[in-house]
């Protein structure tokens, strides 16, 4: 399998090769990868890629998947792409 042809994050078009290269460069947490690759920052908010990236990280770090570091507050509102005009009005 050519990692250049495997998409990990569909929203931001990040390939398996991009993720592996970034990990090799030393970005070894979800947060760091997110900052350097924008992974998980598209409209889906990481629903698709989170688990795939965590699995890559777990393999690299040789730890179980739930020991890969993620901050508990890494998910923030708004959960979906929401036009700013919605918030320009007073909430009902």
């Amino acid at each position: 399998m050519d990692p250049k042809k495997v998409i990990i994050c569909r929203c931001e078009d990040i390939t398996l090769e991009d993720v592996r290269n970034a990990i090799k460069e030393g970005y070894t947490s979800w947060d760091q990868l997110k900052r350097v690759l924008r992974i998980g920052m598209g409209p889906c908010g990481g629903k698709t890629c989170r688990i795939l990236v965590l699995r890559e990280l777990a393999q690299h770090l040789n730890v179980p998947i739930d020991e890969v570091k993620t901050r508990p507050t890494v998910v923030r509102p708004p959960l979906r792409a929401t036009p700013l005009k919605v918030f320009a009005k007073e909430g009902k």
Binding site: D2, V6, I8, L16, K47, P78, R80, V86, K89, K92
Partner: peptide, 30 residues
């Protein structure tokens, strides 16, 4: 907060039941 593409509502409930279901898994292949 609940929103559509026009409005948003503020909600202050005493209890919440989250029943959001699931999302589909993706796998890696070329």
């Amino acid at each position: 907060l609940a929103a559509d593409l026009e409005d948003f509502y503020k909600i202050k409930p005493k209890r919440v039941v989250i029943a959001t279901g699931a999302s589909e898994r993706m796998i890696t292949f070329e």
